[in-house]
Amino acid sequence: MGTGRLSIDLSAIVSNWKALASLARTEAAPVVKADAYGLGVGPVARALAEAGARRFFVAYAEEGFALRRALGPGPEILVLGGHMEGDARLLAECGLTPMLNSVEQLTRHLESMPEQPFGLQLDTGMNRLGFEWAEWAAVAEIALSQAPVLLMSHLACADEPDHPMNPYQLDLFRQMTDGLNVPRSLSATGGILLGPDYHFDLVRPGIGLYGGLPFEHAQPVVALDLPVIQVRELQEGEVAGYGNTWQAQRPSRLATVAAGYADGLLRSLSHRLTLWNGDKPCPAVGRVSMDLLIVDVTDLDGTPEALTILGPKQGIDRLGESAGTIGYEVLTSLGSRYARAYRG
């Protein structure tokens, strides 16, 4: 096999969803935007639907179209980006529910498709999406008269449990929504872990489904093994890779491995990356290039057929830390060239 093998455990995703839903003790609507965080929206969403999920969140109407094709009729698909110009046809044909974010979107939706269900997103301090306090005060009566299906906001610092922004946003969300006869949602994965005050009527687990922090008890979901193309012997003093940035300090064996930044292994991992052969670490050397890595396998007893970059010794968050980023970016950057195998 010329490309890496990416193994995705659907049963682990379902188990993580059930665990987060159990913590929240309320409806848990999976977030499957960005092609289910890079893991394939069709297989992932179908597994979750078969396990009982009836609502899903995506970012844009185009993602909702792909999800509806995967799921067929039935489950509700909510669009976080709301009703953008030109979305009406997709929203109608695919039965999508936009989460309206502004007066402009509310006007567009009520004028163009007054019978289409919608929800509303409120800004409680993140300053990214949603109606701010003054806007909400101005349009709340009109919006609520049209029977929105959900009122939601989003926490900016939920992965930091002691951050003062969390109770601030909770208080503001309550002030904006208490007493309204509409289901409410405030929390994604991090908010679920903050406790029942943050759960309301629906939670939106995302990264926790896919094995990432801050859900420390998540089951691992992905494994990635990269095939070795060639192994060569170097003498002390020889160099390897672009720019000659690595020089052998001893006689060395180097394996050239089939993956690079075109496959989502960020160039920032250069000189900071470890692969594994079972329990034995194998440092990558030199720069990450487009299609290839060079790995020092001098201390291995034999020549491996493949090396592991995501597995028991290194998950998405540890790899993200090595790259100076987060597990989200590791997942969503996984390239299309991997041979994908779904389990469970």
Results as ranks from 00 to 15, higher is better:
Q146G: 00
E216T: 11
F215A: 14
A143K: 07
Q175H: 15
V228R: 02
L209R: 07
C157W: 14
E104K: 08
P148E: 04
A147F: 00
L172D: 06
G191V: 12
P196Q: 05
A147I: 00
R174P: 10
E115G: 04
L180N: 04
Q121N: 11
H109Y: 01
E160C: 12
G125R: 05
C157R: 15
P117M: 07
S187K: 02
L150P: 08
L172C: 11
P148M: 01
T107R: 11
F131D: 07
A137H: 11
G119A: 11
E141C: 08
W136T: 09
F131H: 05
A218L: 04
Q121F: 01
E238H: 08
R128L: 13
A134V: 09
S145K: 00
Q169F: 10
E111N: 08
A147T: 06
L129P: 12
I142P: 00
P114V: 15
Q175S: 13
G179R: 04
L224I: 02
N181G: 01
A134S: 08
L122M: 05
P117Y: 01
Y168C: 07
L151P: 02
L122D: 06
P167G: 07
P227G: 11
A188R: 04
L110C: 00
A138C: 06
L170M: 09
P164E: 10
P214I: 09
S102F: 01
S153N: 07
S153P: 06
A134N: 08
D162F: 08
E135H: 01
P117W: 01
L194E: 13
E236L: 04
P196R: 09
P117S: 03
N166Q: 13
L193Q: 05
G125N: 08
P214W: 13
T189H: 02
L100M: 03
Q146A: 15
Q121A: 08
N101R: 09
I229R: 03
L129E: 12
S102H: 00
E160R: 12
L170H: 12
H199G: 01
G191A: 10
Q121E: 11
A147C: 07
R174L: 13
S185G: 13
S112C: 05
L234W: 03
R174N: 15
G237E: 02
P167T: 11
W133P: 01
H217T: 11
E135T: 02
L106W: 04
I192S: 01
E115F: 03
A218R: 03
W133D: 14
H199L: 06
H217P: 00
G191P: 14
F173Y: 07
P227H: 02
M176R: 14
G195N: 11
I142V: 15
E238V: 06
L180M: 13
G208H: 06
L202K: 01
Q230N: 11
F131E: 00
P196I: 12
P117H: 02
I207N: 07
E135Q: 15
T189A: 04
S145M: 07
L144W: 05
L150N: 10
L186Q: 05
I142C: 08
R108P: 02
T177K: 06
F215Q: 10
G125V: 12
A140S: 14
F173N: 10
P164A: 14
L106T: 09
G211T: 04
E233A: 13
D159I: 10
L129H: 11
M113H: 09
P196V: 10
G179M: 08
G125I: 06
R204A: 04
P220L: 04
D201Y: 09
D225V: 00
C157S: 15
V221L: 03
